[in-house]
Amino acid sequence: MKPKLESLLHEYGLADKVLFVARQTFEGIIDTMRNGYIFVLPSLKAIDSNKGFDIVYLEVHAY
């Protein structure tokens, strides 16, 4: 999925505006949330998944 998204970013001239964030320390996550303008979390529905509202939405809102 990431290569396709990166390709679209280049196509639309947004590659320098978007940061894909990998695993980070807790402090790194907070710093990233505080310095961001937009938070995007892609949602992939797994066949056996019953996961609903993710706590990360509340966490990012707090910062």
Score class of each variant (00 low, 15 high):
M1S: 09
M1Q: 07
M1C: 08
P3Y: 01
L5Y: 11
E6P: 00
S7G: 09
L8H: 04
L8I: 09
L8P: 00
L9N: 01
L9R: 00
L9Q: 00
H10F: 05
H10V: 14
E11M: 04
E11V: 04
E11L: 10
G13W: 00
L14G: 00
A15M: 04
D16W: 02
D16L: 05
D16Y: 03
V18M: 01
F20L: 11
F20D: 01
V21S: 06
A22E: 15
R23A: 12
R23P: 03
R23Y: 12
R23K: 13
R23F: 10
Q24G: 02
T25M: 02
T25C: 01
F26E: 11
E27W: 03
E27I: 07
G28M: 03
I29F: 15
I29C: 06
I30A: 11
I30E: 06
I30C: 06
D31V: 10
T32L: 08
M33K: 03
R34H: 09
R34K: 15
N35T: 08
N35R: 10
G36T: 15
Y37R: 11
Y37N: 14
Y37T: 13
F39S: 04
F39L: 07
L41Q: 13
L41D: 13
P42F: 01
S43C: 14
S43K: 14
K45L: 12
A46P: 04
A46I: 11
A46F: 11
A46D: 05
D48Y: 13
S49V: 04
N50Q: 10
N50C: 05
K51M: 09
K51Q: 07
K51L: 11
G52A: 08
F53K: 10
F53Q: 12
D54N: 15
V56G: 02
Y57N: 12
Y57M: 11
Y57E: 03
Y57H: 14
V60S: 08
H61G: 05
H61P: 01
A62K: 12
A62G: 04
Y63E: 03
Y63G: 06
